[in-house]
Design a protein around this nucleic acid. Structure first.
Lengths: 197, 197, 197, 197
DNA sequence: CATGAATGAGAGTTCATTCAT
DNA sequence: AATGAATGAACTCTCATTCAT
């Protein structure tokens, strides 16, 4: 009975959706199975435990985000300013939040410490470093304001998360292009070096 | 046997701490009891259910935040610009995040829908309206950039939340004053009307 | 604060009422206290445990029944036939069921074994013996049909219990006199020696 | 892991046994599970709650009784007198009380109001109506004494219940045939129209 | 391979009982 | 003597995990 072409992936997606909706701890394995139209036992063929499923989902979400951001930079061709690079990253973010809404929401849940394995945490750090690198380069070129790069990442990322949370449940797709552009500029202002007031 | 001077309050604080640490769903009633040095049954004398405790904690957190923000404005004396008002609000926020760290972290958890009663949601909306009002006035005076006020609130609030999350577990108290000022300016830039780029 | 003239008795009555309404096991000590307008602790001043209260209530109910039956016989003056004696007993029963409705209902609950002390069981047996004695005398005089006296008691008592149960919640007081007389005759027919058919 | 051929039925039987022994409220779910040699969780696969189990058991008991009575009448062939019909009903009762002793005892517990759903109560009424119909026909033919049919049912049913209660724990099986016949006649006398005294 | 009935540790909740006031 | 807040064992119910089919 080979019904599912890629069961592990289906399970990951389903889990992500439910985790986003009701939290990791608030999601039951039978619920995942039911939503995926699969028997409970089948989950355990691919993931040894709920914790493993949670970590796999988390890692999948983070990795996909990293891929989308990297791809956004690569596809955008060479850029000469941080503002231009930011535009590409912004596109990467919005694309990711649009296409993997549940994944993004899940990543933004503040509390993963209960089940996150060191490996997952390392991956999370990788994304942060990727963003911090962008900040640092911008600071060196004078385009981005001074300060702890990680802190600036946290601010910008937090603002973007606030945006997505605010738009829920429709997701970022619902926002008109104009408003999205305005928002992009606001977040860039957060990073941009400029005498304010 | 009235040992605890104010058990309901103690329970609220304890619950908030644990909710911040491990999520509402990840927190067990016995754990709350143990942390509060109380028997499990005692919780149920004051809160009819875990859900009730969760809502009470949420409302307490939101109300306290609203109070701190209101107080910050009132104590700051009359202000003539949005920037000045923002400074007062910023102080209100940092004070709140410093003193009620767990409460702030809990409020920033993205997923409360599983247990939040309408009453709690109404209170949450109240805080949003309070902030939106500040934005609208700033927009009318030309100091704050155009756009949906609620969305701008979401951005600024999200940035601040990102900051607090980043600083965990030490909390905002650990941040040097200078860095805090820089951060304040960055978030203001997010809101401030000014041609960027 | 001497508010209650006879607290133990009040508690017994209250307990009996609740036991009748919701079973011994279904009745909580706080519920008894509340109904009696007393603090929980006060019950424990007079009854060391719920079990003790249950037994005391049971014994009180049985003893009262025995008293009422005995009194009915004594007050009725000397009787010469079993039928006459039965009439007196019937009056005793109806009076008891009318005045101590809760007590009667409680006694008729089939399952007391979970909490009944040997002492209480002995008292129950005493009532049975009292009734069996009446049967035996009637059998010797030829007025009451042959058979195990205890079994006949069970039948007659069961019929009466069925009556009271049927009349609930109004109790036996609601039954018109005529119907009550008919019922008395039916139960007597159950005992009376006569070739049926 | 389908070990039990018919787990729901097994659980119903087990529950009935324990309810008869120690009351609905006095019976704990783990006790049911243990007696049925099953894990606690398994009960909840078939009955959503203790209350549901209680109602299912009650309904099963009542329905079985109704079936046995109906069958007794059907199997007995056509009858011409109420006395003959009563004999068949009596056989139905004794058979039921013999084979489903626990069920019968449970049904005779006076207090089911705490957990009985309207549906269960309706079923109970159905049995009463069945019996009342027999009474009414007998009254019309002049064989059964005058009076409220339901009340007469209550009397006769109560007497039979008293019998079963008296015979516990051996049950009706222990009673010698002769005594059983005598009892049948006594209960018939309760119903039969005849000048008593 | 996939399934879902079965399990039992553990979560939420109740309640008999105690004891400081 | 009376009270009722406090307690925790025990109860009802849930759910991650297993395994016979």
């Amino acid at each position: 009975m080979t019904r599912k072409p890629d069961l592990p992936q289906l399970l990951l997606d389903t889990a992500l959706t439910l985790f986003a909706e009701r939290t990791y701890e608030g999601t039951q394995m039978p619920a995942v199975a039911q939503r995926a139209q699969v028997g409970v036992g089948s989950i355990y063929r691919y993931f040894p435990s709920k914790e493993a499923l949670g970590n796999a989902a988390f890692q999948y979400a983070k990795r996909t985000l990293l891929d989308d951001l990297t791809a956004a930079l690569a596809d955008g061709g060479p850029v000469s300013t941080s503002r231009e690079e930011f535009a590409l990253l912004w596109r990467g973010f919005t694309r990711y939040a649009g296409r993997h809404h549940a994944a993004f929401v899940f990543l933004e849940h503040q509390q993963h410490d209960t089940f996150l394995a060191p490996e997952s945490q390392a991956l999370a750090a990788e994304v942060d470093l990727f963003a911090a690198d962008f900040i640092e380069r911008g600071q060196r070129s004078g385009e981005i304001r001074a300060g702890d790069p990680q802190l600036l990442v946290a601010l910008a990322f937090g603002a973007f998360a606030g945006l997505v949370k605010h738009l829920r449940p429709g997701g970022i797709a619902e926002l008109p292009t104009e408003a999205l552009t305005q928002t992009e500029e606001a977040v860039w202002a957060l990073l941009h070096r400029e005498a304010t007031r």
